[in-house]
Every structure is written in C-alpha cells, then in structure tokens.
Amino acid sequence: MTTSPTRRLRALAGVAVLALGLSACGGGNLGSDDSGENFPDGAINLTVGQDPGGSTDLIARALANPVSDDLGVEVPVLNRPGANGALAAKELASKSANGQELMVMNLSLVAITSLTVPEDDAINLEDYTVITGISEDDYVLVSNADSGLNTIDDLKGAGALNYATTGTGTGSQLSSALLFQLAEIDGTAVPFDGGSPALTAVLGNQVDVASIQLGEAMPQIEAGTITPIVTFAADRNEFLDDVPTAVEEGYDVEVAQARAIVGPKDMSQDVVDQLREAFTKAFETDAYTSFNEQNLLRPQELDGDELTEVWNQSVETYRQLTEEYGIDLGSTE
C-alpha cells in the first residue's frame, strides 16, 4: 500500500499494452450481425456440422474460397459439430433466411440419422431451402490385406465377425448392416467416430471389416494394406473398376453419402438464384474439379428441386429397407 498512485497507473498501462499485443494476434473475423435488403450484405457463414478435417469440412472449405471470390464477401467455414450435424442443422433452421447463413447438409443426416432419433429430433429437408447439390461419395467395404477376407463368400465362411462403422446413423452403418443381414453373415457393429478411426481399426486388426467412404479408404487400398471387397455404389467406380458392387454380387444394397448446400426455410428465389450461380461457378473452377478427382467424389450438382426429389427417394428407400429387414440402427427412445 506504499506504492504511489501514479506508479500504479503506469504499471496498469503496461499490463494493458502487453495484453493488447497478446490479444491482437487472435485474428479472424467472427462474423457480423448486420442484415439488410441488398444481398450479399457482409460475410456469408457456411456452417459444417462436423469436426474440422473430415470430408464434409474439406468440401466446404474447397467451395468457400471460390464462392467468396465470386460474391466479393467473406465466406467463413464454421464448424459446429454434434449429433451427426443435427445440432448445426437445428440452429440453422432458426436463423434468418436472408442468405447470410448457409450449411453443408449431409444426406445421411436427413435419411439415416432420422431413423435413429425420436420423430421430433429428426431433420427434415422440408424445413430448409436447398441451394444446390454438391457431390456423392461412395462407401466401400474393406478388410485387412492380411486377413484373407477378399470376397463376400469369404465373409460368409468366416463365422462371427466384428465390423467397424463410422458412427451411429451413418451410411457406413446402414450399408454394412444391410449387407450382413441379406448375406446372412453373423456380424456385430462397433461404432467409431468417423472414417479414419474405423480404418485404423481395420489396419490394426481390431475389427474384421469396415464400410468407409471411398476417398478415405483409397490411399490404403493403393498401398495394398487393405482389400476392397464390394462397393455400395450404383455402378462400378472408375478408380476401382475391378471391385464389384454389392448389387452385382446379388445383394440389393445401394448406399452413398451425398452433400448439399442449404439455408433456412423460405429464402427468396432471387437470393437462391444468386447463390446457386456462385456455387455453379465454383464447381467449374480447376481447383475444385481436381479436388473432386483427388477425393474420388462424384459431382451431383443438381438444383434445389432435383436434389430434393433424389434425396427424398433415398429417405424412402432406406426407411423401407430397415423396416423390411428389421434393422435397428440405434436407440429410438
């Protein structure tokens, strides 16, 4: 208490300057809260319902740059992971439909996760405005290259198997559950958090097989450490043309992941058109097309109505299949 007030104040200022310097490096514009008539008005937030680094996140980031260039505003990608993206989707639904708030929506969230949660929690495409489709991603069933499990017949003869899924309510879970049911293979699902841990579980022989998105499995397939058994696509994939589809093998399992850009319900047609145009231009850039090739993504750049129809069809098919074969994808309490 002997310190003089002036010295104390000088010290205070010193701390202030130091903290200022420190905080100045935080960087990053966390968004803007203004809204107006003219679109776009400030940054367009592109929310991703998954963690950074996953396929959905990478796709969002690949699109954000060219769209930002075209519209002349910032397009920050915001990760809001939780409940397979349901959390982000619910938040989006309550936001203003002025075109400043968009999200990358996954087909699995609409078509599969909704089979595993109570009706109130299900995400319905009708509650959103679809701007544009993006691309499709195939699932492939893989085993460890040393396991000797190369065909579905091998699986049938192997006795009880454990299979890794990329999570509850994902296409990975649905595709393998359906295949195992139809082929009468005795299998137990072990849910992991995403493709990379599921793949690691196969590589480390923790599980026998896993259904993984093709882009995530491809590096290990090329390295020869894992063996692709079947894909769950409609047609053979051009990068894996010696691997049969499940349908070719006689099991009617066709599951793919697809993604679309959506906004809150009731967006004005004018804003939707502007956004669709910006995304279409982004799809045509060289950087983006080579991104698709690298990650083995098949473009599905449909407009809102077309996409809604295709997705609704998938929703219906998946619901019928799970009911028909009595497949339980998780709790429905």
Binding site: G82, A83, T116, V117, T168, G169, P191, G330, S331, E333
Partner: peptide
C-alpha cells in the same frame, strides 16, 4: 449430452 452410440 448425447450418447455417441445410441443417440439418446
């Protein structure tokens, strides 16, 4: 929070 295995 939400259980990652069952969604409940």
């Amino acid at each position: 929070g939400r259980d990652g295995f069952t969604g409940s």
